[in-house]
Amino acid sequence: MILQNAQGDARIIAGGQSLMPMLNFRLATPTLLVDLNRIAALSGIGMTDEGLRIGAMTRTRDIETSALIAQHQPLIAHAVPHIAHLPIRSRGTIGGSLSHADPAAEFPALMLAVDAQMVLHGPQGARVVPAGEYFQGLFETATKSAEILTHIDLPHWPEARRFGFQEYSRRRGDFALAGIAFWADMDGDICGECRVVAFGVSDRPVRLHGVEQILQSHPLNDADAMLQARDAVDDLLEPDSDLQASAEYRRMLAAELLQRAVHAAGGMA
């Protein structure tokens, strides 16, 4: 209601770890801040019939230390310590990170990798947007101006699924210059269905179908497949250059990180 009445001039504040810097830089100048911090129903992690449900206001640190996440979403559990530094993880929320949609952030890539569903609530009621449609560009999501993200639903993670997660940043805790989230459902030694999601290399996290196809139906340690997969990463990505890294370097990194992630999944790291 408040969001609607303010006609786009209000902003939600969650952990404030992205919004406060923007206010400081005068990059955002809302007249009204709507604080979600005291709405208990928006935070917590629980089991559902389909998998796990995470409230948007759940702190990154609580996800990092959650036994449910460790057991049922090992890829996420493994990746979360890469996000920023402890004090920032203690304040920042998963909903804030997903709504902010920084292309180098971990949560958006992870949500894409695990086929998460975003639950949005607005004046017209609730709707569900799959991760693949939710991220729409640099700091842009499918959320409409009077909507909020309330929950994220994560589908069941098969027990035999293997994964790897790799990212590179110059200092520990920084946003990644490039990163790869990977999982594979194995058919014996052979890679079956798999996911390759790259982040930090485009205006949003990207799923690399072409690379997935190359890896499928080979063992994870197949050297020829890996060479082809690395080349495909190079072909598929068109990152931007910025102060921290050129497009070319980001491509080189992504290819290397892919190899490391796949090898980690195959127990070869």
Binding site: R171, L243, Q244
Partner: peptide, 24 residues
Amino acid sequence: LVYDDMGQLLTASFADYLLPTSTE
């Protein structure tokens, strides 16, 4: 401290001007 061809300073915050932290 990085300047572009027009003499614009591109590194005007800690997001772009990196300092070593305790982990480095």
